[in-house]
Write a protein that binds this DNA or RNA. Structure first.
Length: 492
DNA sequence: CGACTTTGACCTGCGC
DNA sequence: GCGCAGGTCAAAGTCG
């Protein structure tokens, strides 16, 4: 907190050395001539401490002490305001980092799996029968993931991973469609040089035309086309506990249908994105049959328009999950956390605590399970990637940790909109950059932030206040989510 | 009056 | 071909 102390010293200097007292004095003289005498006397007594006038000296001494107390009070108030402002900035930063951390984490999982695949390929060259049990075990539901890996790009992707990440960052920053989650992320992975020069949002149907530009055979192209068709149908399902009929993800949705699904007494609602005309993104919302407090939201498609900051968190979260799915990084449908390939406890508390993949459905689906309380996780899963995170955040109350989406989208959105000037934030991203680039592209920023011990220290000090304030915010948002007109489906 | 929800009808894919 | 289930459409109703 060295910078803070330094800043405080500067503020105090400014507070006392500024023209506040002089200007106020002049103001008093001009606007309240009747007080001029007393003010002048105050000033004079303060400057003539050696006067021998007993009564006047005692009075002036009292006035001096009173003025000192007033100054101290004003100083304390100023300090309090400054700390509050600092607190607000830290809260915003925390949520941003929380979100970006998850995206980075998903990217890391992808990289680790790529590394492992490369090792497996090498070992398989020496011993063709190694790792067969794994393939057999995951044969059914990992087939989709393996198909993605069969695009002939796996080796290239491994080779170019580092440079690809940077170029992807740049292209994504140019993109005006940050919410293009599933397909776009995969498209960048598959063909990172096809971003439009202008960086304009692509129309919904732009993908199939440019998908397989690979130097492969026609058979490969056909397979790639089939794969891309499947990619377009890939879905991201989010399970979260919510009393509202729909979780708040920052987008505008319009309900266009409702059906009773088999095996579930709760109806399934169908929504489409109405933030832009022709946006192909749709989502299904249904309560879990086993636990009606769990809301299952399934997203499908990619936005063809920029998203508001409030929607960025969800978009980036689902995008990260989807990109991981579509990159074929997961060897098993049992999920990331069940895989031995992933370090236990790499999931950030407050981020989705369980990610599962399923190809048993007609389309590959990645499910982010936000309903698990991280505090209930086994201790052997609490070995974090970053030593700064765990014991602080794992102590957060379950209602917070159970709703990272809310925290990330709603809270960040509201803070962003209310804060006004996010450029003052440490480690901030320009707002347009945030809109233009949601996912792993901010990983470098996150890494820089989390690597900063000063930030970590500030983060620790900010968490306690976040708990309380987030609790307040939660209540307010819940009240906002319910309107007199409907049951709270609207979330803008 | 426009935007939105509701809800029954319709379409499509799939299994038998 | 038939029935079922999932998904979508569109007219009617609702609300501000």
């Amino acid at each position: 907190m060295e910078p803070v102390d330094h800043k405080r010293a500067v503020n105090e200097m400014d507070f006392f050395a500024g023209d506040r007292s002089s200007s106020r004095h002049v103001k008093i003289e001009t606007e309240h001539p009747g007080l001029l005498q007393e003010q002048a006397e105050d000033v004079n007594t303060g400057l003539n401490l050696l006067t021998t006038n007993g009564a006047a000296s005692e009075k002036s001494s009292q006035n001096l002490k009173e003025k000192q107390r007033v100054n101290q009070l004003a100083d304390a108030r100023s300090e309090l305001e400054r700390v509050n402002a600092e607190n607000q900035r830290l809260k915003l930063t925390l949520n941003q980092v929380n979100n970006n951390y998850f995206a980075l984490q998903m990217h890391l999982v992808s990289l680790m799996q790529r590394q492992r695949n490369r090792i497996a390929e090498n070992s398989e060259a020496n011993n063709t029968e190694i790792d067969r049990p794994m393939e057999d075990k995951t044969h059914g539901e990992s087939i989709v993931a393996m198909q993605f890996m069969d695009l002939g790009q796996a080796a290239k992707a491994e080779k170019d991973e580092i440079s690809e990440s940077s170029s992807r960052d740049q292209s994504a920053e140019l993109s005006g469609s940050p919410g293009n989650t599933i397909v776009e992320s995969m498209e960048r992975r598959e063909n990172n040089s096809t971003t439009t020069p202008e960086g304009l949002p692509q129309p919904p149907g732009w993908l199939p035309n440019k998908a397989p530009k690979l130097n492969s055979t026609s058979k490969d192209n056909e397979q790639a086309q089939q794969t891309m068709a499947m990619i377009r149908k890939a879905r991201v399902s989010v399970r979260a506990r919510s009393e509202a009929s729909m979780i708040s993800d920052g987008c505008q949705w319009r309900k266009y249908g409702q059906k009773m699904a088999k095996g579930n007494p709760c109806p399934r609602a169908y929504y489409r994105c109405t933030m832009a005309t022709g946006c192909p993104v749709r989502k299904q919302v249904q309560r879990c049959a086993e636990d009606t407090t769990i809301l299952v939201t399934t997203y499908e498609g990619n936005h063809n328009h920029p998203l508001p900051p409030a929607a960025m968190a969800m978009a980036s979260t689902t995008s990260a999950a989807a990109s991981t799915l579509l990159s074929g990084s997961m060897p098993s449908a049992d999920g990331i956390m069940n895989s031995n390939l992933v370090p236990k406890g790499t999931m950030l508390p407050g981020s989705p605590s369980l990610v599962t993949l399923s190809a048993s459905a007609p389309f590959p689906t990645v499910t982010l399970d936000l309903t698990h309380n991280p505090n209930q996780r086994p201790l052997n899963q609490l070995h974090p990637i970053s030593p700064h995170w765990p014991h602080n955040l794992s102590s957060l109350p379950p209602h917070l940790l159970g709703h990272p989406i809310y925290n990330q989208s709603k809270l960040v959105g509201t803070v962003l909109s209310s804060q006004g000037n996010i450029s003052e934030l440490p480690g901030h991203l320009p707002q347009n950059q945030m809109q233009g680039h949601p996912v792993a592209d901010t990983a470098a920023t996150v890494a820089a932030i989390t690597a900063d011990p000063n930030f970590t220290a500030a983060l620790v000090s900010a968490i306690s206040s976040i708990i309380g304030n987030s609790h307040r915010d939660n209540g307010g948002a819940n009240s906002n989510s319910t309107t007199s007109r409907n049951t709270g489906d609207n979330n803008t």
